[in-house]
């Protein structure tokens, strides 16, 4: 038995239900993938060809040209919104949004779980009901407040109004409640005050939870469209998701829409969330399922 490579694989009888299962899966995969492949194909051809022939099966040679123009060529009047600039803005929004939500959510949960607040449960449910009032519902008052505070066209204005998070508060609350009481008591006897306990014990214990939250929130923040569209009017503040729209707008007149460039931007916009999810997948699963305390 030295040759293990030729071990015969037991043949299973072919079942029609299996074939059906796979057919459904394959169809689903194609349904998700084909639009992406179309985007990819469009980025490799010239705009003229795209407008003449529509999507094709041919892979062109314009990939690098489209990439250069998408990343470094500015559109609009000010010349500030290059792809690179928008990528940076999107990253700032995504990371700021995720970190802000985590910090606020953790601190709120810490207060709710560990301090004898008089109306802690009521406060928690009030926070929880804000899930029913997403930004889209309260966009006008939110905009007015941001405008009055002079936060339009600032990163603060872009991020802060989105930060308060019932989801993060809820997850961290559940997590903190599962931390054994004795740990708090041991820390108290060891002379750790509330701040030290939070930083020395709770934050390190929440690592995986924080990572999981970061992934969800980063993708969520990255994909924000409505709010950035409202608060940013200066082109230098545009995010990618908002900026792509700007490019395909020039359809009227004699201009050929910049399909290659816009699709290239779309591709760039897809990448960071995908990479984050791929690289932090294991943390994500760990954070939401594991309870190693």
């Amino acid at each position: 038995m030295t040759d293990t490579t030729s071990t015969p694989i037991a043949k299973r009888p072919l079942k029609w239900t299996h074939v059906m299962d796979h057919l459904i899966l394959i169809l689903g995969a194609l349904f998700m993938l084909v639009p992406l492949l179309m985007v990819l194909q469009t980025t490799t051809t010239t705009d003229l060809e795209t407008i003449k022939n529509g999507p094709e099966f041919v892979i062109g040679d314009q990939f690098d040209d489209n990439f250069m123009s998408a990343m470094f060529q500015a559109s609009g009047f000010s010349g500030e919104n290059t792809g690179l600039r928008m990528l940076m803005n999107s990253l700032i929004l995504g990371i700021g949004f995720a970190l802000g939500k985590i910090v606020i959510g953790m601190m709120a949960a810490y207060a709710l779980v560990y301090f004898r607040l008089r109306f802690a449960t009521l406060a928690f449910w009030l926070i929880f009901t804000t899930l029913l009032l997403p930004l889209e519902v309260r966009i006008l008052p939110s905009y007015e407040v941001a405008q009055k505070l002079g936060l339009l066209n600032t990163y603060t204005g872009l991020i802060v109004p989105l930060i308060a998070s019932a989801t993060a508060t809820f997850f961290f609350r559940q997590f903190f409640r599962s931390v054994p009481e004795e740990l708090v008591e041991a820390a108290r006897i060891d002379g750790a005050g509330p701040v030290k306990f939070f930083i020395d014990i709770l934050v390190p214990l929440s690592q995986t939870m924080i990572a999981a939250m970061f992934i969800i929130m980063f993708v969520f923040g990255w994909n924000q469209y409505l709010w950035p569209t409202m608060v940013t009017t200066e082109e230098g503040m545009f995010t990618l998701v908002r900026g792509i729209k700007q490019l395909t707008q020039d359809l009227e007149g004699t201009n050929i829409p910049e399909y290659g460039r816009a699709n290239m931007l779309a591709l760039i916009a897809i990448l960071p969330p995908v990479l984050v999810v791929i690289f932090f997948q294991s943390w994500f699963v760990k954070g939401l399922t594991e309870s190693d305390k």
Binding site: P180, E182, E185, A186, A187, I189, L205, K293
Partner: peptide, 12 residues
């Protein structure tokens, strides 16, 4: 100083 039933060691 106190010793707890479940030890209450800081896991990290």
């Amino acid at each position: 100083a106190m010793v707890f039933q479940n030890y209450a060691l800081y896991p990290h």
